[in-house]
Write a protein that binds this DNA or RNA. Structure first.
Length: 110
DNA sequence: TTGTTGACTCTGA
DNA sequence: CTCAGAGCCAACA
């Protein structure tokens, strides 16, 4: 069951559930989640923007298809994401980029 | 109902 | 590899 398309759960609930499944030291792309949740990557980003700060969802493990942290509209936060990932063992280069081939997580395995 | 916006991805150059 | 344009879906006015 790699595609939990439960109609009982809201679209956001599916996205948050998928992100929560990402273990420490691994990352996923918006496209991956969008594909599994049944929506486009933009919607995933929008759901993350609506994510409350008290949420236990590891939103910092979500990056774009290029393995980079996308700038958000509201103030900073990209540095927080980079800091949290760095604490989990994810290394960034001078371009604020990480190796997707190394850290990308596959939901198909679980 | 339409039109705009947004933490994106794909394709072509 | 990078940059620009088009497509994409959901929320809001």
């Amino acid at each position: 069951m790699s595609r939990p398309e439960s109609s009982t759960l809201s679209l956001y609930a599916r996205i948050y559930a998928l992100v929560s499944q990402v273990p420490s030291g691994h990352v996923v792309t918006y496209g991956q989640i969008g594909r599994l949740a049944g929506c486009s990557a933009r919607t995933v980003g929008f759901s993350m923007a609506a994510l409350p700060g008290d949420s236990q969802v590891p939103w910092h493990r979500v990056v774009n298809s290029r393995g980079q942290i996308s700038p958000r509209s509201s103030g900073e936060g990209a540095w927080v994401q980079k800091l949290l990932l760095g604490k989990e063992g994810v290394a960034f280069d001078d371009r604020q980029r990480l190796d997707l081939d190394e850290y990308r997580w596959s939901f198909s395995d679980r």
